[in-house]
């Protein structure tokens, strides 16, 4: 029979765990609202930019030497995977689902005989990938020095990707992040950044609206400025989506944990009461049988 003292300590420890998880859930809920707003506010920019770019790409199609950032290097031997996760854990399957998707990609690319390089954003990505892939990590970043991820942060990531591209370190670049669908669902997503992929609806729209534009200074000069900007904007978009997803995932994970702790407390309390009653009953029986024997 478990003793009463042990049960009591267990109950109080589960109670304090519940307090922590509840507090974390509430913090995550507050942060979620903010990061969700930011992700939504940033959406028009990357959408418009993608629209402008696909227009431009459609109108420069067939030009003799398109910029490599748009058309690719003509090879796809070396892949750079930008894996973006959070800095912190305790958010359910958020980090591991992104890493799993990236890992699947790595295995597939390797089977096809491609070289893979990794650019890790966020501490967790590094924690989870370093054992298996430390030799192919070319760069890593985390969020320890930034409180609110601004466009300049995405820009620094984008600039590095661009630098690698200009040094011909890779041919194709893909970013991994979790798209925020709702508080309970986050979709791990792979999005190709270089050369940019346009969704079908966008390119159709671009074809429909293929009014000849006038360009100032000229198409190429604009493209060379617009492409890096698009890269940064897509990375920024991914990081913001990620931030919202992280908080959403943490919120539901902590909600589960709180509920779980509640169930556990209930069970333990029941057990505690039963044990106490059993002890009282035994004592009574002892007293009565003692009195009877007199």
């Amino acid at each position: 029979m478990p003793n009463l003292k042990d049960l009591q300590t267990r109950i109080s420890s589960v109670k304090s765990t519940q307090k922590i998880t509840r507090a974390m859930q509430m913090v995550a809920a507050a942060k979620l609202r903010r990061s969700q707003e930011r992700a939504e506010a940033a959406r028009p920019y990357s959408e418009r930019l993608a629209g402008v770019l696909s227009n431009l790409a459609a109108s420069t199609k067939g030009s003799p030497n398109p910029p490599p950032l748009l058309a690719g290097t003509g090879k796809d031997d070396v892949h750079l995977l930008v894996v973006a996760t959070a800095d912190r854990g305790l958010c359910g399957g958020f980090n591991s689902s992104i890493v799993r998707l990236a890992r699947e990609h790595i295995t597939r690319l390797r089977e096809e005989g491609k070289t893979v390089k990794l650019f890790l954003v966020g501490k967790k990505a590094h924690d989870m990938m370093k054992r298996q892939f430390s030799e192919i990590v070319v760069e890593r970043r985390d969020f320890s020095e930034v409180r609110d991820v601004g466009f300049d942060y995405a820009q620094s990531v984008g600039d590095h990707v661009l630098k690698l591209f200009n040094e011909e370190e890779f041919d194709v670049c893909t970013i991994f992040y979790a798209k925020f669908k709702s508080v309970v669902t986050q979709q791990p997503t792979a999005q190709q950044l270089v050369p940019p992929m346009f969704s079908d609806s966008e390119s159709e729209a671009a074809q429909a609206a293929s009014t000849p534009y006038e360009y100032e200074p000229d198409e190429e000069a604009i493209l060379t400025k617009l492409l890096p900007l698009n890269l940064n904007a897509q990375i920024f978009h991914a990081i913001l989506e990620n931030a919202a997803s992280e908080q959403g995932a943490r919120m539901s994970a902590m909600d589960n944990a709180t509920r779980n702790a509640g169930d556990m407390i209930e069970r333990l309390t029941l057990q505690f009461n039963r044990t106490r009653q059993a002890i009282i009953t035994t004592e009574l029986i002892e007293i009565i049988s003692g009195a009877e024997s007199l």
Partner: peptide
């Protein structure tokens, strides 16, 4: 007329 910055519309 629309003006968008990376952070918001």
């Amino acid at each position: 007329f629309e003006l968008v910055s990376p952070e918001r519309l």
